[in-house]
């Protein structure tokens, strides 16, 4: 949590500075503009997780959203009244690092033609990294002078993907709960590592919703929630029992011209 707290403090400081600058700034009204270019930079936190934690996960021992940066640009077109449309290209990194304690969690460790498959009870350290280019297409609605609400679908193209982890301090029952048990220790060589990066889909779909909150003429802050509607794995990939959805929130700054 301390890392999140630190990030929050930084975000708060930046926001305070912006608010201060706003006090001396020009009129933020931009209603006359038809087309705007918006450059954004943000920090994302969230998780790639099942909707509803399966009962085989007994506790979440650590959850660290690792440095997840969003940067990109949108083109915003004002249409009728307060309505508009916005599309862009964002670079995103949706990463996380979680540690859980499991009881009878189905897993499979595959390397080449060898594989261990069964039910794992013990400690799992999971790392997910998804670097992607995202194209959001959003409907925008101005709510007053400063705030714009936006909602719409997005498609992401993955540039780099990693879904790997370590199963340690526990045991695996091969196949099912009556299968032979193999104990796993707390250091390399005694634990099992797994890597399902290759099974991850190259494309993700989802919906995003958020607000742009203009602080000064060219500066604003933004929030977004990106809710993945497709799992991160191919449907045929059964090893990870639950469908994992990337659900991330972004807070950041934007400049508009």
């Amino acid at each position: 949590m301390t890392r999140i707290m630190k990030k929050n403090i930084i975000i708060c400081l930046v926001c305070s500075l912006l608010l201060a600058s706003n006090a001396f700034g020009a009129d933020p009204d931009s209603r006359k503009k038809k087309v705007e270019v918006i450059a954004r930079v943000g920090y994302s936190i969230g998780g790639t997780a099942p909707l509803g934690i399966p009962a085989t996960i007994r506790s979440i021992d650590a959850f660290r959203p690792t440095a997840s940066i969003m940067a990109g640009a949108d083109l915003k077109l004002s249409l009728i009244g307060s309505w508009g449309i916005m599309a862009g290209l964002h670079y995103e990194n949706k990463a996380m690092d979680a540690e859980v304690t499991t009881k009878g969690y189905r897993m499979e460790v595959v390397k080449g033609d060898s594989r261990i498959e069964g039910l794992f009870t013990g400690h799992v350290k999971q790392e997910v990294t998804q670097k992607m280019l995202t194209v959001p297409v959003m409907l925008t609605c101005r709510l007053g002078n400063r705030v714009t609400w936006k909602v719409g679908p997005y498609i992401s193209f993955l540039l780099d993907k990693d879904f790997s982890g370590i199963a340690s301090d526990g045991y695996l029952r091969q196949g099912d709960p009556t299968g032979q048990r193999v104990d796993m220790g707390a250091k390399e060589g005694e634990w099992a590592t797994y890597d399902f990066s290759d099974e991850m889909l190259d494309r993700q779909f989802g919906v995003a919703m958020g607000f742009d909150w203009r602080l000064a003429k060219h500066v604003g802050i933004m929030t977004d929630i990106n809710w993945g509607l497709t799992g991160i794995f191919d449907k045929d990939f059964k090893t990870v029992e639950q469908t994992l959805y990337p659900i991330y929130a972004t807070v950041g700054l934007y400049l508009c011209f």
Binding site: M1, I4, K7, N8, I11, C12, C15, I45, G46, G47, A49, G52, I53, P54, A55, T56, I57, R58, S59, I60, F63, P65, K103, G104, L119, R173, P177, T178, T223, I247, A249, V251
Partner: peptide, 26 residues
Amino acid sequence: KYLSIALMFAFVLSSCIKDELPNTEC
């Protein structure tokens, strides 16, 4: 708002730990 977003995931994740299922081993 930002603080609450930051805390949301931790909360969502930790609040939905289900009741332990009965043992399957025998």
